[in-house]
Design a protein around this nucleic acid. Structure first.
Lengths: 160, 160
DNA sequence: GTATAAATACTCGGATATTGCGTGTCCGAGTATGAAGGG
DNA sequence: CCCTTCATACTCGGACACGCAATATCCGAGTATTTATAC
């Protein structure tokens, strides 16, 4: 079970936009250069963020992407859902009904599958932990550990 | 982010072996027929469980698989790890160091990436929730909801 | 009748194809910019 | 000098290839059973 690489890209891009002030749009090309990523593919991820309402895109020559709302109002869960989709990792296919279960009356399967319930319980814990963290929390943690980060990024984007 | 289908198969197979008493080995073919699954591919998953020490395999004409230890001593986490591997879902590739970060001194990256930390925190919550549930718990939940399950399965396997 | 030995059927185990999704790339639609030309 | 118009460069957005891992399959190694045969 591996999470898409785009999630990491999206997280760092959101933080970068915040560090840059979020006043003028930043193009995909700039962001891609800032992380040495394939710009066309990064653009695909940013589009997903825009569709999810996390970023806003502006076309034209000085266009690009901006955060749609402050970091305090974006949870890590929002970003993960935007890139990975909202589907659950464990998908119950109801194999209990097939084979040996096929001969049992249907009413015996009205209650949800115990395996699925156990998995869902764990997945809910994961989702809760993701939803409990906002991007502002993540940025604050980063700033606390390396206070130079924001200034260093601003300087680099000013020169490139 | 989708979990392998084999996890569901493995979970149900473990419960089935327990319901059947876990005294004589059950062959892959029988288990596959009991769930209408491709037996050769199911065998692959069962091998993974055997390698993880969850099941024991016995060759020969009356061979098959048995649980290596009681359900109380098998956590859901054990099964997931056996099938999916122990790698983390979110893999930090340290993109913060590339591009704009390449010009910053190395010592600024001694502290772990804040994005990675946030993801890891959520993933740990997921793992804890999985490890907190034993297969005995899952079986108990299933028995509570549908008390006929065990008997129905025993009857089917006695006739097939 | 009993013990021995060979044949047999059935099982696991790993090596080998195939499919689907994540990854990566390309080109067209659209817009703000800036230049050019006329008033 | 200023306004209008047109060309342009740059951006997003979706459509189009590629590669790897999950999925699925097949065949060989090994063992307990069964059967046949000799004593």
């Amino acid at each position: 079970m591996r999470m898409s690489e785009g999630v990491e890209w999206a997280m760092h891009c959101c933080l970068t936009l915040a560090w840059l002030g979020n006043e003028v749009p930043v193009s995909t090309a700039k962001l891609a250069a800032g992380f040495e990523l394939p710009s066309a593919y990064l653009n695909k991820q940013l589009q997903a963020l825009a569709k999810a309402g996390i970023m806003t895109s502006t076309p034209g020559v000085r266009g690009g992407f901006r955060l749609a709302r402050p970091l305090e109002e974006i949870t890590v869960m929002d970003v993960v859902t935007a890139i990975e989709g909202s589907g659950e990792a464990f998908q119950c296919t109801e194999i209990r009904r097939r084979g040996a279960g096929a001969e049992r009356p249907e009413w015996q399967f009205r209650t949800p599958c115990a395996v699925s319930t156990a998995m869902r319980k764990a997945e809910m814990a994961w989702r809760r932990a993701l939803a409990a963290q906002t991007l502002a929390d993540v940025q604050a943690a980063a700033d606390r550990r390396a206070p130079q980060a924001g200034e260093a990024i601003r300087r680099w984007y000013a020169q490139n």
